[in-house]
Amino acid sequence: MIIMKISEIMTENVQAGSVPGTVSSIYEILREEKLSGVPIVKKHTGELAGVITRSDLIKNPDEDQVAMIMSRNPITAAPDEDVNSVARKMINNNIRRVPITVDNKLVGIVTSADITNKALWKINNTEPVEKYMVRNVPTVWDKTPLPIAYSITNFFNFKSVISLNDDGKASGILTETDFINESRVVEEQTIHNSSVSTEGDKWTWNSQSVMYILKNRLQFSDKIVKDVAGDKLVSVTRKTSVKECANILRQYNIEQVPVLNMADEPIGLVRSSDLMRAMIQ
């Protein structure tokens, strides 16, 4: 058990969006700051209004207003709450970040990566990570075009995908951050025609209506998975300890790491949010 207040590990200078505000401004913050989500505050009062994540943006390319896609009434914590309590909130509510508030004013934020990088790695937990890893993880050939890889993550409702080389060995990993960095929102116009015919003895009247539909979609670069995932994969084995794995995440400043067998084939994935479960059991 960790005896530590959340104020000791929270980020105080919080990057936040605001309402009213546009989605494009959130894209900008996430790209520039390399974040996976940000709290949203009311522009005139500074009060917490919600939270918006990369997943919200990706799933709602047609929406331009932050207020329409942010999660309202987010789970929050106070600065004097202990780390274990906040970790439990994250696990029970399946979330990866908790805004820290005082009188509903945003004073900080804590993510699952913060808890792993600043607290969990200090515990001498020798349990193997296989106890906490996710086993059903999507994989793709590393020469797969990015749009196809993105479709696969959507199909599996997963936030990352492990790439395989020609020999079926793990070669890299793509995350939501990678997909956002390699995409942009474009407006696409489609034309729909409908015809109505009226028959008579001598005359046939044809009328046609045209409907123009504007729709936003994510447009990816023309790269393949290997171009983005690179060729330096950080990994662990199923027998790697929780402490060692947490240390690896901290050392490389990453939120997840593939679990490989002796043949370098992927058998699972360990995320910061998975490791947090070791703190409350």
Rank of each mutant, 00 (worst) to 15 (best):
G21A: 01
F158I: 11
A49Y: 11
E8P: 06
L35A: 04
V86C: 02
R277A: 07
E188Y: 15
E63F: 15
K5W: 07
K226Q: 06
N104H: 04
V234K: 07
S171Q: 11
L233W: 09
I91G: 04
M90G: 04
G230R: 03
V257I: 12
A67H: 11
F179K: 02
R96G: 15
A246K: 06
M133H: 12
E255I: 14
N165H: 13
K243T: 13
N165Q: 05
I9F: 02
I115M: 00
D142Y: 10
N181L: 12
N104A: 03
V140M: 00
L260M: 08
I40N: 01
E12F: 09
A67E: 11
W121I: 01
V257P: 00
D64H: 13
V185T: 11
I109C: 07
T111W: 02
V257C: 04
I115T: 00
S221V: 10
D103P: 05
V186C: 05
S25G: 03
K202H: 12
K239P: 08
T177F: 03
S194P: 13
M90I: 05
G50Q: 00
L57H: 15
M4T: 06
E12K: 15
V234C: 02
P138W: 04
I280L: 15
N117K: 04
D274W: 13
Y150V: 09
M276V: 11
M70P: 06
N206S: 12
E255C: 14
N165D: 01
D82W: 02
M276A: 05
F158G: 09
N261A: 07
I123K: 12
K122R: 15
N181S: 13
S241T: 08
K215D: 09
D178E: 08
R184Y: 15
V259Q: 01
